[in-house]
Design a protein around this nucleic acid. Structure first.
Length: 555
RNA sequence: AGUUCGAUUGUGUAACGGUAGCACAACAGACUCUGACUCUGUUUGUCUAGGUUCGAAUCCUAGUCGGACUACCA
């Protein structure tokens, strides 16, 4: 496969810029999160994009926290964001903060005042909103719009000095109240907030608006390609206006369409609701589309990067099928996860012709696709646990498992033939009775038989137990945000089903937090951080593809 | 209404005037000591209407549909 991978539209722009010698061929991107929440899969895409582009074109990528709103931002979020980026496999060139530029930004504001391009406004928030106009109506000039430069300078200085209360005054850019782009109708540059900032403490009581900080921060850092999502496209003319009036480095912003995923929600507001209203256990609940949640669920960084690569990047609205994400997760886990046996819904299998009290050990591959993963031993005895669904009293068509008269291979052990079963008064099968073929021993099979089915099993006296949390998609509908009514009414009630007593191989008892396993024929699972010495907890990361389930569905 | 971005199979993304391709999903089959993995094959697409051209997903015109914008949030 030597075919060239085609370029996405950002790579095309970058390669053109390099070809034309723009910025001396230098490429510098940045990832600019606000430290007011946890990163989600949408951010992961942006991280992969920005860091990936820098890597590909031998450039640099900064991590810059856009921390211009002290009320919502916290150091805790800074730490979680840094952790997630590192975990995803990326390293930033500089760790920066918009708050590092507060003094410089203040200077920019003074410059604009002196050029007659900014003014202090005494209007209230309501008055400003009321005079903003609308998409079909121009706005009205503020009565304070024509204050003298000297007066503006003095008032702005007093704002900084703490002479005024929150909301009493703002600094606004003097652009055009009739501009067709609402964002250019004298946008706010500074507001008063007597609030403690996570980094600058109490040294400021005025804070720049995002729009007055973001573009200039990029400029200060000499970012060549400032990449963000489409909803900021209307802000670009404003950033360009500030940059031009200030005569500073012309960073250029490029916008791409944010990625949406089926069966989930992505907005911070909605995710926050899920957490606050206890629909999930926290930001890192394995059902959350947060990076921390997916990590806990057992998704790997490699799978997330692969997913990001595969879905590509464009400008049209989209909703990516979550099965693609799941495919990427399986693809990676298939390579790295050791196979083990676990019986989730047990029924006892008794081998009638196996001697009482006899035990054997069978050797089996940890990963048949990876010799280096090694082998392990499985204890075997007369009584085994098997999966309840692997037995049918009256077998369906194409059912290749156990039913009276049918044979299966016990994985890595013997071929057994079902001779009968026992039921309780309620009609539930309590025991399956089989005979085994001693000459069919795995690895040394002289029986000459081939059976269609192979099932997993666990020796009753040797099996240990664990708690298993079976996760499924969080919502019942593809696009919960687009349905009528409250998105939360579409939560999947079965998104987490806890199995408190699952049988596992004895070797699994020492599994460690975060380890990935494939429970053969059942799916990929990982050890949850809630595990204790007494109670091991596994999360189901994702199921295996299941052709039989499809067959059953078809009826 | 204004500004602005967009429209290629069920989903995502290519094709840069010259055979509409790739991945996922779906379907059919092969293989299988995991009904997994792997492999093979199949179905489904250029928003509409005009125009330019030997030739249009691509260029032009007009329309249609969808998104975003009217926070002292980012």
């Amino acid at each position: 496969m030597s075919e060239e991978k085609s370029l996405n539209f950002l790579e095309e722009i970058i390669e053109n810029d390099i070809a034309e010698g723009k910025n001396g061929g230098r490429i510098h991107t940045r990832f600019p999160p606000e430290p007011n929440g946890y990163l989600h899969i949408g951010h992961a895409t942006s991280i992969c994009l920005n860091f990936g582009l820098a890597n590909k074109y031998n450039g640099k990528c900064n991590l810059r926290f856009d921390d211009t709103n002290p009320v919502t931002e916290e150091t805790e979020y800074v730490e979680s964001i840094k952790y997630d980026i590192k975990w995803l496999g990326f390293t930033w060139d500089n760790e920066l903060y918009a708050s590092d530029y507060f003094e410089q930004l203040y200077g920019f504001a003074v410059t604009l005042i002196k050029k007659g391009l900014a003014y202090v406004d005494d209007s209230t928030a309501e008055e400003i909103a009321a005079t903003k106009g609308s998409t079909f109506e121009p706005g009205k000039n503020s009565p304070y719009r024509d204050r003298s430069i000297e007066e503006n300078l003095q008032l702005f200085e007093e704002m900084r000095a703490g002479k005024y209360k929150d909301g009493e005054k703002t600094l606004r850019a003097k652009i055009d109240m009739a501009h067709p782009n609402l964002l250019l109708r004298d946008p706010l540059m500074y507001r008063i907030k007597h609030a403690h900032h996570h980094r600058t403490g109490d040294s400021w009581c005025i804070y720049p608006m995002y729009d007055f900080a973001h573009g200039q921060s990029d400029s200060i850092e000499h970012i060549t390609h400032s990449i963000c999502t489409l909803e900021f496209i209307h802000h670009r003319p404003l950033y360009d206006w500030f940059i031009e009036q200030l005569g500073i480095f012309p960073s250029h912003q490029y916008e791409f369409a944010r990625r949406n995923l089926t069966y989930t929600v992505m907005s911070k507001r909605k995710l926050l609701q899920l957490v606050n209203e206890n629909h999930v256990t926290g930001w890192d609940d394995p059902r959350m589309p947060t990076i921390s949640g997916m990590r806990r669920r057992g998704y790997t960084a490699k799978a997330l990067r692969e997913f990001s690569d595969t879905i590509g990047i464009a400008k049209r609205e989209n909703i990516v099928d979550i099965s693609l994400l799941e495919f990427c997760v399986r693809e990676d886990l298939n390579k790295i996860a050791n196979r083990v046996m676990a019986v989730l819904d047990p029924v006892k299998l008794v081998i009638t012709n196996y001697p009482d009290g006899q035990e054997e050990q069978f050797e089996t591959d940890n990963n048949p696709g990876d010799e280096a993963a090694g082998k392990r031993w499985l204890p075997f005895s007369k009584e085994l646990w098997i999966e309840r669904e692997d037995f049918m009293e009256e077998p369906a068509k194409k059912f290749f498992r156990l039913a009276p008269g049918l044979m299966v291979r016990l994985k890595s052990a013997y071929i057994v033939k079902c001779e009968g079963f026992k039921k309780d008064d309620a009609g539930n099968v309590t025991e399956v009775h089989c005979s085994y073929l001693p000459e069919s021993k795995s690895g040394n099979d002289t029986s000459g038989l081939t059976v269609k089915g192979t099932i997993h099993w666990l020796s009753v006296p040797h099996a240990k137990t664990a708690e298993v949390r079976m996760y499924d998609r969080l919502f019942k509908v593809e696009d919960p945000s687009n349905e009528d009514g409250d998105f939360k009414s579409y939560i999947n009630p079965d998104s987490m089903v806890v199995l408190p007593n699952v049988y596992i191989e004895p070797a699994l008892a020492s599994a460690k937090d975060g380890e990935h396993y494939q429970f053969m024929r059942k799916g990929y699972f990982c050890v949850d951080k809630d595990s204790t010495a007494e109670n091991l907890v596994f999360n189901r990361t994702v199921t295996l593809k299941d052709a039989w389930a499809k067959e059953v569905k078809k009826g």
